[in-house]
Each structure stands twice: as structure tokens, then as C-alpha cells.
């Protein structure tokens, strides 16, 4: 009796003594578990897979048909022009996408006034961020369509005349061919980025709008008394107070640019020609999972490179967050 009593007592007291240390882990456990299964383990699996050549098939007995090739996939990647095109396109995305930050800021400044119905305008500006990227891609695809899109219709209005063709149906004769943005190796990427910018600007705008709510009005007033206005007011008084919003806006924009995938998939499928609008994420999908792909090892190697690029950036981001937290305490 006495022995069991002390036993349970000491157990209880251990739990009680360490309650503060244990509780957070108990609460974290489910999340950690899922994070491990769906994020951490797959990362290592795909790192491992990138050292194999594999078409994704198992034989009749359920054994993988993968063949070990070491760093062969990475060597191939180095000499693969489609990989470099994708990488360059990712950089173009990154640079162009940064326009979303100032654009979002200016729309936010513009909308940050008390006019009747302003909530409605704000919602309308925010609207593109709410709808799915796939839908945005589709809409812009139609928008650019040389036959029935806005671009085509405007062009036809200026450069084409309506005539009757050989079987008596209406048709157009154009003095210059209608620009086909998504079929041009030079312009297609920019066309897609423009579509991507639309929701991204809305996202940055909403970040800045919330940021503007927290701008201290006494500082604005003080600055105004000191004679600051216009650009100077913005640059020296408002923007410094918006630093946290700017930081988040840049972060989400960089991530948005690096993981661009759905727009490319829906608007061009990586085309025209030899993957001229490919980005790393889509090229990975194309080589590994798509109908003409089924090269899982090579796809994993691309994923690994993309992961490495993101890692550099994410480490910097985490480092900053950590520094801020430390500073805050």
C-alpha cells in the first residue's frame, strides 16, 4: 500500500513539477506530428530521391524500380537549358513582383481616406486577392486572346477591317497581325507576371492599409507643424512607421514570386516553345508528375534546387524575426 502510494505520488508530483515544461509540448504534439509527416519527412525523401533515376513505378511485387545515380541528376541539371530558362524566369518574377510593394502602398495611401462608400472601394481593390489564382490566370488568358480577348478586339478596331470571306462569313483582314502575347517567347513571361501582380498588389495594399491604421496621428500632426508635406512626409514620417508592414509585404511577395506555379500552368503550360515561360516549380511538376514527365529523380533534383534558393531567403527571414523578438523583450 505504502509503496504504491508513494509511487503514484512521485509520478504526480513529477508531472506537477514539470507542468510548465510539458504542457506546451503536449499542445504542440499534434501540429509537430503533422508537420513532420507532411513537410519535414517529404523534404528528406525528395532530397534522397534526387539521387535516383526513377519513373515512379513499382514492379509487380511492389519493389521500387529506382536506380541509384548519385549526383548525376544535378550534373544534368547544370547542362539543361530548360533549367536555366526556368531559373532566369524565376529571377524575372522576383524582380517584377517587387513592383507589387510600392503599387500596393500607393493604392493603400489613396484609399486611406474617409469618403462615403470607401469600404466598398477597398473591397473592390481587394477582390482579386480573394479569387483563386487559377481564375485570375484564366481571365488574363482570355484578356490576352488575339481572337476574342480585349487585346485582340482593341487591335482589330485599329488595324483591321471587317470583310466577308470566301464562304460569305464575316472575318477580319489586318494590316498588322494581332499581338499574341502568350505565344511570344519574349513577352509571355511578362504577360503572366502582370496577371500575377494583380492579386499580389491587392495583398500588399491590404497589408499597408492595416499598417496605416496604426500610424500615430500625433506624429503626423507634429510633422505637419514642422512644415513636412507630400513626399517628405511620406518618406520621413509615414514610411518608417510602416516598416513592419513593408517587411511582411516584401516577404510575401518574394515567396509569391518563388512559388509561382498556377498562373504558368493555366496560362501557357510552360510554353511556348522550349519551356520559355517555365519557372522552377512548374518545371519540377512537368518533369516529375505530368504526362510526359515521369522522371521523379530529376524532378526532385529541381525541387531541391528550388528549396535551397528558398532556404537562403527563409533563413534570413527567420534570423530577422528572431532578432526582432529578442529586441522586443
Amino acid at each position: 500500500m505504502a509503496v504504491t502510494d508513494t509511487g503514484t505520488q512521485s509520478k504526480q508530483s513529477w508531472l506537477k513539477r514539470n507542468k510548465l515544461t510539458v504542457t506546451p509540448w503536449v499542445f504542440l504534439a499534434p501540429a509537430l506530428c503533422f508537420f513532420a509527416i507532411y513537410v519535414v519527412i517529404p523534404i528528406f525523401e525528395s532530397l534522397w530521391l534526387s539521387l535516383y533515376e526513377w519513373n515512379g513505378l513499382y514492379d509487380a511485387d511492389g519493389n521500387s524500380t529506382a536506380v541509384w545515380v548519385g549526383f548525376d541528376n544535378y550534373v544534368k541539371l547544370w547542362g539543361d537549358p530548360k533549367f536555366w530558362t526556368s531559373l532566369v524566369n524565376n529571377v524575372i518574377w522576383l524582380v517584377m513582383f517587387m513592383l507589387a510593394v510600392p503599387a500596393g502602398l500607393f493604392i493603400a495611401l489613396f484609399l486611406n481616406q474617409s469618403v462615403p462608400g470607401m469600404r466598398l472601394y477597398k473591397s473592390l481593390f481587394f477582390f482579386p486577392f480573394v479569387i483563386s489564382q487559377v481564375v485570375v490566370g484564366l481571365i488574363f488568358g482570355w484578356f490576352y486572346n488575339p481572337d476574342f480577348g480585349v487585346v485582340g478586339s482593341l487591335w482589330k478596331a485599329v488595324y483591321c477591317e471587317e470583310t466577308v470571306n470566301i464562304v460569305g462569313n464575316l472575318t477580319f483582314r489586318c494590316s498588322a497581325p494581332v499581338p499574341d502575347i502568350l505565344s511570344s517567347e519574349t513577352w509571355a513571361t511578362y504577360g503572366i507576371i502582370l496577371a500575377g501582380l494583380w492579386p499580389q498588389i491587392a495583398y500588399c495594399m491590404i497589408l499597408y492599409l492595416t499598417g496605416l491604421n496604426n500610424v500615430a496621428s500625433d506624429q503626423i500632426e507634429a510633422a505637419r507643424l514642422d512644415g513636412a508635406k507630400g513626399w517628405k512626409m511620406l518618406w520621413y514620417v509615414v514610411l518608417p512607421q510602416l516598416r513592419p508592414a513593408t517587411f511582411i509585404a516584401v516577404v510575401v511577395t518574394v515567396i509569391g514570386a518563388l512559388r509561382s506555379f498556377d498562373m504558368v500552368a493555366i496560362m501557357t503550360g510552360g510554353g511556348p516553345g522550349e519551356g520559355s515561360t517555365n519557372v522552377l516549380a512548374y518545371y519540377m511538376y512537368e518533369t516529375a508528375i505530368s504526362e510526359y514527365g515521369e522522371r521523379y529523380g530529376y524532378g526532385s533534383a529541381i525541387a531541391t534546387v528550388l528549396f535551397a534558393i528558398m532556404l537562403v531567403y527563409i533563413s534570413y527571414f527567420l534570423h530577422r524575426m528572431y532578432q526582432d523578438e529578442k529586441g522586443g523583450h
Binding site: 486572346n145 488575339p146 481572337d147 470571306n165 464562304v167 462569313n169 494581332v178 502568350l182
Partner: peptide
């Protein structure tokens, strides 16, 4: 036809059926 790179095979029926 122009713009063939932005058309699916079904889209390409349009100029055919229109007589272009």
C-alpha cells in the same frame, strides 16, 4: 493560321468552320 500557339485543337476548329 496565326496565333496557333494559343489555341487548342478545338479552338482551331473555329477558323475552319468559319471558312477562313
Amino acid at each position: 493560321v496565326d496565333n496557333h500557339a494559343s489555341m487548342s485543337w478545338q479552338d482551331a476548329i473555329a477558323p475552319f468552320s468559319n471558312g477562313d
